[in-house]
Design a binder for these strands. Structure first.
Lengths: 151, 151
DNA sequence: CCGGATCCGTTTCGATACTG
DNA sequence: CAGTATCGAAACGGATCCGG
C-alpha cells in the first residue's frame, strides 16, 4: 500500500527542522542508485521518455521507474508534460534545479576517469570522447556545461 | 549468511566487461545512502572511529555500518588500521582515491546551499560557516581542499 | 570497553503480469 | 504508452551476543 507520501524516502520523512550538515540534503538523490541513473540518462544520453529510461543497461523495472520519476518531480528536479508531437506520450525534462546538478556529475566523471579503467575512452558522451570532455572541463567549463544542456 | 563476496553490490556483481557510460562506476558509492553518509562524516566531521559513525543523526545500525566499511575498504576508498593510542580501537582513514571525491562533495554542497533552505548558514563545516566555504570554493578551491583534508 | 556477527521482524525492492 | 498490482527476494533496523 502506497502511503499518502507515497514513496518519499526516509531521510525526508524524518527530516530535522533545523540547519543540517551539507550533503545531507542531497542524500535522497545521490544516495539512490535509480535516481542517479535517470539523471545520468537525461543529461548524457538525452533521454526524455519513459520507454527510453526503461531501456538502460541497468534494467530498471517499471514500478521503480515510476516511483523515481514521481519522486524526482516532487523534489523539483524534473518536470513532466505531454509530448506535443504525440499526445499519448509524456516528456520528462530537467528543471533548473536539476540542471544545476551537472557540475556535480562532471566532477564525478573526472573522478571516474581517474580511477575506473572501464570508464570508456571509446564511449562517447556528448559530442566527443571523454578525454576531450575532461580537457574542456578544465579549460572552458561553463561553455561545456551550456553545450551539454542545450545541445 | 554472508556470501563469499559478502556485501558486494549488484552493480559490481553484474559489471559489464567493456567501456561504460560515465557516472556508472560511481553508482556503488554515489547511489548508496550509507556509504555517502560515512564519507561525509569522515570529510566534514573528521570521524575516524566505528563508534563515531554510529552516532550520526541518521542512526546507522551496526551491521549496516560494518558492511559499508568493508565495502568502502574493498573499493579502496578507505583504509583500516589499529589506533596507536588505543590498541583496542581501529582508525579508518581516506585513501587518495577517497580524498579525490572531495571536489564532488564540494559541488554537492554548492548545489545544496542554493536549493536547500535548511543547509545551514549557522552550521559550521570546517573552520567556518558554509557561506565562507562557498566563497573560498570560488576563489581558492585548491587551497580549500588541502585545508579540509589536512587541516 | 571496542568492533563487529547473528538472529529476526519489518520494510523496500524487483520481476513479471496486468490495466486504463 | 505509461504506468499499477502482486508477490517472492533482498535489504534494513534493532536487539543481543561474542571474541579480543
Amino acid at each position: 500500500m502506497q502511503s499518502l507520501v507515497y514513496d518519499l524516502p526516509m531521510s525526508r520523512r524524518t527530516a530535522l527542522h533545523g540547519p543540517r550538515c551539507p550533503i545531507t540534503f542531497a542524500l535522497d538523490i545521490f544516495g539512490d542508485k535509480w535516481s542517479l541513473i535517470i539523471l545520468r540518462d537525461m543529461v548524457f544520453k538525452g533521454k526524455r521518455h519513459y520507454r527510453e529510461f526503461l531501456a538502460s543497461a541497468e534494467k530498471i523495472s517499471t514500478n521503480i521507474l515510476a516511483s523515481r520519476l514521481k519522486r524526482l518531480e516532487a523534489e523539483g528536479l524534473i518536470s513532466k508534460a505531454r509530448d506535443t508531437k504525440n499526445q499519448s506520450k509524456f516528456v520528462y525534462s530537467l528543471t533548473g534545479k536539476g540542471e544545476a546538478l551537472l557540475p556535480v556529475m562532471l566532477e564525478l566523471i573526472r573522478w571516474s576517469a581517474k580511477y575506473d579503467p572501464q570508464t570508456g575512452i571509446s564511449d562517447n558522451i556528448v559530442n566527443g570522447a571523454p578525454a576531450q570532455l575532461l580537457e574542456r572541463l578544465d579549460e572552458d567549463r561553463d561553455a561545456l556545461i551550456e553545450e551539454i544542456l542545450r545541445g
